[in-house]
């Protein structure tokens, strides 16, 4: 990776990009628990197409870190069986766009195994998968399918926005005894992305979220993070969009409160409710397509719980209901212009 690694800011903290933080999370947990296995296409000797598993096979051996055939259904089905045996698999689906062949194993099997077996069998999997666009990946390397999984009972959905969060959340996900979908916003693997694709790329070296403890720590699932406190409007976002929101707020000077959800299911409803009741306005920002996206669920929850505090209609800023286009990627992406316009509108209403 091209990221510049700075000196540790203290004895135990290192600058890491998100790939390194994710790698470190698996390394730390694998060292602690011999039941953890990492599997997926190209994850073994090569260390993954994004290098997230680099060095793990060498360190933990081929029976704990191994390449798999190209069958996502098989990867998840095998992981469910390994979980039934007593292992704790961390399968990688190379791109979230490729997760659909595994849907039956995730939705009908992993997510319901505890329920249907009276707790005799569980599926303690953590399915890692890079998601989201902004890398000219076209329609098959850019999708954000989180809304499919938040609709499924029995599975948790986690999306980090910084290297620090990625490591702490991934460790918590791996240790969780329920299946977790862990979507990694690949646009911010190397650095926070402010939405201005035509400006020079940043790396994680100067961002506070790039300071990552080398050892073990967890960030509990189901806890949001208020990344900026404010009074004028609440912005609910996760993954890449947290950083885009932050840039728009910085550029416009609006006193917005930005809530990074971090976990979509289970959702930190208390933090959301407290924030919206305080600001009276709520904007939801996600990169995924709009219709039936997770934003719809958030909008419904906010109006159910905060209706009498709302001073304006809840606004969604999302990707369009089209496939993710290749050349027109930045017209699709909910960037600073779309967010800025929505912000103006919600403050005027």
């Amino acid at each position: 990776m091209t990221d510049t690694i700075e000196q540790p800011v203290d004895d135990t903290t290192t600058r890491m990009n998100m790939i390194q933080a994710i790698n470190s999370a698996m390394d730390v947990t694998m060292a602690r628990d011999p039941a953890i296995v990492v599997m997926g296409e190209d994850v073994g000797y090569f260390g993954g197409v994004f290098r997230a598993t680099a060095g793990l096979q060498k360190k933990y051996g081929k029976t704990r870190v191994f390449d798999t055939p190209i069958t996502e259904c098989g990867i998840i089905g095998v992981a469910v069986g390994m979980g039934a045996y007593g292992l704790r698999p961390v399968p990688e689906i190379q791109f979230a766009d490729y997760i659909y062949p595994a849907l039956d194993q995730l939705v009908s099997e992993a997510a319901r195994l505890r329920y249907r077996s009276g707790g005799e069998f569980t599926a303690p999997l953590t399915v890692r998968s890079p998601f989201g666009g902004g890398i000219f990946g076209g329609q098959t390397h850019s999708q954000s399918p989180e809304g499919i999984f938040t609709h499924v009972s029995g599975v948790k959905t986690v999306i980090p926005s910084t290297p620090y969060d990625a490591k702490g959340l991934l460790i918590a996900a791996i240790e969780d005894n329920d299946p977790v979908i862990f979507f990694e916003p690949k646009r911010i693997y190397n650095g926070p992305f402010n939405g201005h694709w035509d400006r020079p790329a940043e790396n994680w070296s100067k961002h506070p979220g790039g300071a990552v403890p080398e050892g073990y720590y967890t960030i509990p699932l189901g806890k949001a993070n208020v990344v900026r406190a404010g009074e004028a409007v609440t912005m609910l976002a996760y993954g890449t969009m947290v950083h885009v929101c932050a840039q728009v707020v910085a550029d416009t000077g609006v006193d917005a409160e930005i809530v990074d959800l971090r976990t979509l299911v289970p959702l930190d409803i208390e933090t959301i409710e407290a924030s919206v009741k305080k600001t009276g306005r709520c904007m939801i920002v996600h990169e995924a397509t709009r219709t039936s996206g997770f934003g719809a669920e958030l909008a419904a929850l906010v109006q159910e719980r905060c209706f009498y505090h709302l001073e304006a209609p809840v606004v969604r800023v999302t990707g369009f209901d089209t496939p993710y286009p290749h050349s027109l990627e930045w017209a699709y992406f909910p960037g600073p212009v779309r967010i800025g316009q929505a912000l103006k509108k919600i403050l005027k209403d």
Binding site: I76, V78, A79, V80, M82, D104, S108, E109, E120
Partner: peptide
Amino acid sequence: SISGNLTTQYPQAVGWAMA
């Protein structure tokens, strides 16, 4: 645990055997 969905148990058995 038996699933009503067909043949999902096949890769699961392989995973158990691999483990």
